[in-house]
Amino acid sequence: MEILLKGVGYSYAKDTPFEKRALTDVDLHIPSGSYTAIIGHTGSGKSTVLQHLNALLKPTEGVVMIGDRKIEAGVKAKDLRNVRRQVGIVFQFPEQQLFDETVLKDIMFGPLNFGVPEKEAERRARELVVQLGLPEGVLDKSPFDLSGGQMRRVAIAGVLAMEPEVLVLDEPTAGLDPRGRREIMDLFHELHITKNLTTVLVTHSMEDAARYADRIAIMHKGRCVVTGEPKAIFSNEEQLQDYSLQPPRSVRLQRDFEERTGLKLGEVSLTEEVLAKNIALAMADGGGSL
């Protein structure tokens, strides 16, 4: 499903003494089936943009197109049920999302709310709890009697249980242990491919943005200042610095390696696996004894 932001502005607490502008004239195109990573400094407006993707926030200026639904500043938007079913958001803090008495009920809430039969909703919940690596017995616990990383996993399960067409992820790996981080990012990617999802990821991990996304958008002071492909974005270190960002570790190591040895690896290495392969090749070609 395609999403389009055109000239979007947003102010929190508009027309009050506490009015705070968060977005200015944002143009952002999210093509159907794309995997877009939104990156940017603290407070640059990423979470605010995400909440426009399922009309949780409505623009105070401009237009948001969600599929064929039009959400326009100053125009009342009626019946957003379909939008909410199609676009699932994992919030930045899992506590914002959890509310029910037990983990099972919490995960089943979304699907039940959108008319999925009870049996099917429960099947999904039980399956997801395993997929997300939660410990046995967690289903009957209160979601608030869990560790931070366990809450995060439950919040993710609740969104995946709705089987949305668009998956919107606000720093989904914050609080996850390293294995959980990798497994859950791989799970999102697998769903993205096999279910043909449209995925939008906000992350401070340039490594994840480089590994999984096919498009990158940079937010800076409430504006969407750059969009492009990961290779182009992450090989332009000067531009990243302008926005207080830096390339992923593999790209920085590649730069240091190239400066030190005088070798050139040819392509920018977006992941550590690719970098290792490219260094091994370059050293073999360059005469290094392997």
Partner: peptide
């Protein structure tokens, strides 16, 4: 560490990946 769900710092992971790719 990895068996316990943890990982190694980037430079150590890179060292291992390079060794696997044949860099001695």
């Amino acid at each position: 560490l990895t068996d316990m769900g943890l990982d190694l710092p980037f430079a150590m992971r890179m060292t291992h990946l390079l060794q696997e790719a044949g860099v001695g």
